[in-house]
Amino acid sequence: MFHRAIVIASGLFAATVVNAQTEVPFALDWKFEGPSAAYFAAIDNGHFAEENLSVNIEAGSGSVQTIPKIATGAFPMGFGDINSVIKFLDQNPGAPVTAVMMIYDKPPFAIVGRKSLGVSEPKDLEGRVLGAPPPDGAWAQFPVFAQETGIDPSSVTVEPVGFPTREPMLAEGNVDAITGFSFSSVVNLKRLGVADDDISNILMADHGLELYGNAILVNTDWAAENSEQVRGFLRAVAAGWQDVIDDPAAGIDSLVQRNPAADKGLEQERLQMAIEQNVATDYVKANGMGGIDAARMKKAIEQLGETYEFQNTPDASLYFTDAYLPEGGFALK
């Protein structure tokens, strides 16, 4: 049974249209942190309501874990790692899940280490201990990263760790580096007192990875019956991202309403990292938000195949569709 964190648009306007709204449970990849502010802004600023949608948001436990929630129909829509979708569909042919809007054009997959522990560059991992949560999206890409950077995986001692203990173990020196999303792990380490100049943020995308990152996912059976709701949902998400780009502080206010324990300053830093490094990339600024480049996706699938043995012939049309996006994607100002 799923325990859902219910988040609904408030105010008189929402009350007058609630009967006409479609309920859309939405599964996040992770906890209510900086980058999720875009979705709460879309609620608080009325973007979902304008599309006659009432969106219920649940925190997640890893970007890989979102996929079966969508495929089983427990959630019609969610946010998860497209590379893991590719592998999931290879292992579960015909499963009703696909990506419909790319959010992290440049994925935040990272190796985050401490320079004082000898980790500044990829090859520094050899002979050292790497903490990696098994459901972590960044850990899922480590074999490709190792292949591209010439790391001998057998020389790296991998310590399975939990998400809550990952950064504390690195802060305490119990591991030399960790896998994670850059904006999550870097900011968490700062919160734990690790000096900024001691943190090495090794983005996999800067070291040969052509992969995309997290996308809006949809249950294809639900989408076939609710195509206009999917389009409206994506319009609202794009508007929410524009809102937090224009006014990050207001976006964090929306976040803190749902997570009162959050540190506003750190979460705004986390949001800014996601915007600058992952969302508002040069490609997105030139080509719009939400879509993908077919040639890059082809390379990404080939790259995954270097360390993953496909059981079936890869088919990019199964993993992503732009059918619910406007032509040219959503312009980010």
Rank of each mutant, 00 (worst) to 15 (best):
A316Y: 05
A205V: 12
D282A: 03
K298W: 06
K299Q: 06
N226M: 13
G213P: 12
N287P: 05
G213D: 09
T307H: 15
V218Y: 04
D293A: 11
P248D: 15
V237T: 05
E225S: 01
F310V: 07
N226H: 15
R231C: 00
V218L: 06
V237D: 13
A280Q: 06
D247I: 00
G265Q: 14
L211Q: 15
R270Y: 07
E276V: 04
A205P: 15
G240V: 04
A236N: 05
D243P: 01
R296K: 14
E267C: 09
G240R: 11
E302S: 03
M289I: 08
V279C: 07
R235N: 02
D243R: 03
V218I: 02
W222I: 13
I216W: 00
A286Y: 11
S317A: 05
I252C: 04
E302M: 01
E210G: 15
K285H: 04
A262I: 02
S227I: 00
K298S: 13
M289H: 12
K298M: 07
T220N: 15
E276I: 04
D206M: 14
L217I: 09
R296S: 15
A261L: 13
D282T: 00
R235M: 01
D206G: 12
A295L: 12
R231L: 00
A223E: 07
V230F: 14
G213Q: 04
N312M: 11
R258M: 08
G288E: 14
L271N: 01
E306L: 14
A238V: 01
A236R: 05
L209A: 09
T307C: 09
Q272H: 01
K285D: 10
G240E: 13
A215S: 08
R258K: 03
A224Y: 03
T220Y: 09
I292K: 05
A294H: 08
G251T: 04
A286G: 10
P248E: 13
Q257N: 14
D315G: 05
A316R: 13
M289E: 00
V256Y: 03
N259W: 15
A205T: 11
